[in-house]
Structures are given as C-alpha cells and as structure tokens.
C-alpha cells in the first residue's frame, strides 16, 4: 500500500477544497469566484491527465495507426495526417469519412480527460443543458 497520497489525489483534494469551501465565500466577488473556478478546473484536468493521460494517448495512437496503416509515436502519426490533410488535392469520400471518424474518436477521448461533462453526441441540442 502506498503511504503517501498520489499527486492526482493531492490535486483533487485541493480542487475540492476550493470548490466546497472557498468559491462560495468569495461569491460576492464574481471575477475572483470565476478565477477560482478556472483554477479548480485546471487542478481537476491536471489530475485526470496524470491518471488517464497515457491511456488516452495510447487510444488516440492506436486509432491513428489503424487509419494510416503505420506504427509510430502519436506525434509522428498526427504530423503525417496533418500533412496529408493540408496537401492532398482530393480525398476519396470513404477515406474522408474514415479520417473524420478517427478524429472525432480521438477528440472524444481527449474530452473525457479535459471536459468530462461535454456532451459528445452528434445532436447534443436534444439535451436541455450542459455544464
């Protein structure tokens, strides 16, 4: 058993303190309350990135490897795809759809980390509200 709290646990504890004890106390100062909410969000995102970032990056890399039929680090695959999108004169409609599907999948994975409440359905407007 690990005797020390992990860094993500420390970050989440700090975020919780801000959210539950501090933001409410400065509610009258709306700009400060807003800044503290940003800080809370940053701490939560940092914790998520430390916990789940490697798995999300691996998922994105595997998606790109399947799309491009290449094995390489994520940055190399992203660079290859970006170059193809900038320079290829025409894309077959099927390839275009596959690329878009792959990119949407990668973005959904990133959003699980950075904006877990972001509705990634194709028609989110059917939901009443989103935070």
């Amino acid at each position: 058993m690990n005797e020390k709290p992990t860094i993500p646990e420390l970050l989440r504890a700090a975020a919780l303190l801000l959210e539950e004890r501090v933001v409410e106390r400065v509610a009258a100062d709306a700009p400060l309350a807003f800044r503290l909410r940003v800080v809370t969000h940053v701490l939560e995102a940092a914790a998520a990135e430390l916990d789940e970032g490697p798995a999300v990056a691996a998922e994105r890399r595997e998606n790109l490897e399947r799309l491009l039929h290449r094995t390489a680090p994520l940055e190399v695959l992203e660079s290859m795809l970006a170059r193809r999108l900038r320079t290829a004169p025409d894309l077959d409609p099927d390839e275009d759809r596959r690329i878009r599907g792959c990119l949407l999948g990668g973005l959904r994975a990133e959003l699980r980390l950075y904006a877990p409440r972001f509705d990634t359905r194709l028609h989110p407007e059917t939901a009443r509200s989103e935070e």
Binding site: E78, L81, A82, R83, L85, R86
Partner: peptide, 12 residues
C-alpha cells in the same frame, strides 16, 4: 508548436 489534425481537417 505541434500539428493539430482535427483543426487541419476543419480547415480543409
């Protein structure tokens, strides 16, 4: 500093 393929797709 780094490529953003989703943004490149939108630009295309």
């Amino acid at each position: 500093d780094a490529p953003r393929p989703a943004a490149e797709y939108a630009l295309r």
